[in-house]
């Protein structure tokens, strides 16, 4: 029996009657990774939002099964982490307060130690008590990783994973990606060559409806 299966069937999205993409289908099993590529405006971010369950597709179905249990659409967020340029954290709270809020809303019994560990992992330990509004864009991007990983998600969705990050930050992200491939499913929307080579499968939105497996 499969541990995890995440599939999309003929997903299509239309904004104000303009078709963005059509017929996106794939099935990912545990330890699979998928890169979504395409020119600017081809719908990478849109597709990722749909997969994350925060945007409804115009057509098509998604199916998430974890250990034989079908997960309802409303419960996707429990199993899923997302890092995206569209994501905003709370400016008027400190980094630590943000994480503390996410932990409590999710009803996690995560210990403070784990939060501290996450923060040191993204190299924010010394700034954790500063307001997010005072963070640089790279620091905000780092905090988003802590946000996405706090509940140890089965599926990790990353949109432009390395944007705004320095070399050390990029190294951390690659490490996170490698770990995700060992524990669940990784889906990345990117045009960065290096990001793409880290993934087993690629969907190119320019040549829509096509799904090709590399490797």
């Amino acid at each position: 029996m499969n541990l995890i299966s995440f599939s999309a069937e003929n997903i299509a999205k239309t904004f104000n009657r303009r078709k963005i993409f059509n017929d996106i289908s794939f099935t990912m099993k545990e330890f699979n990774s998928l890169a979504i590529t395409g020119r600017n405006g081809s719908g990478k971010s849109t597709l990722l939002k749909i997969l994350a369950g925060v945007l409804s597709p115009t057509k098509g179905e998604m199916n998430l099964v974890i250990e034989g249990r079908v997960i309802k659409k409303e419960e996707y967020f429990v199993h899923l982490g997302l890092v995206s340029p569209y994501l905003q954290l709370y400016d008027e709270f400190t980094g630590w307060e943000n994480l503390d809020f996410f932990r409590k809303v999710r009803g996690l019994d995560t210990a403070d130690e784990y939060l501290a560990e996450l923060l040191s992992r993204v190299n924010l330990s010394d700034r954790k008590n500063d307001f997010v509004r005072t963070y640089s864009s790279g620091m905000k991007q780092r905090l988003k990783y802590a946000f996405a990983l706090i509940h140890r998600p089965v599926i990790l969705l990353l949109d432009e994973p390395t944007s705004n990050l320095d070399d050390e930050g990029i190294a951390t992200v690659y490490q996170i990606m490698e770990e995700q491939k060992k524990s669940g499913i990784l889906i990345v929307a990117t045009n960065d060559k290096e990001d793409i080579t880290m993934c087993e499968y690629v969907i190119d939105l320019n040549i829509q409806t096509l799904k090709k497996g590399e490797k």
Partner: peptide, 13 residues
Amino acid sequence: RGTVMTLHLIARP
């Protein structure tokens, strides 16, 4: 502030 998506990702409506 664009935090609606954040809320979508952590809580039921």
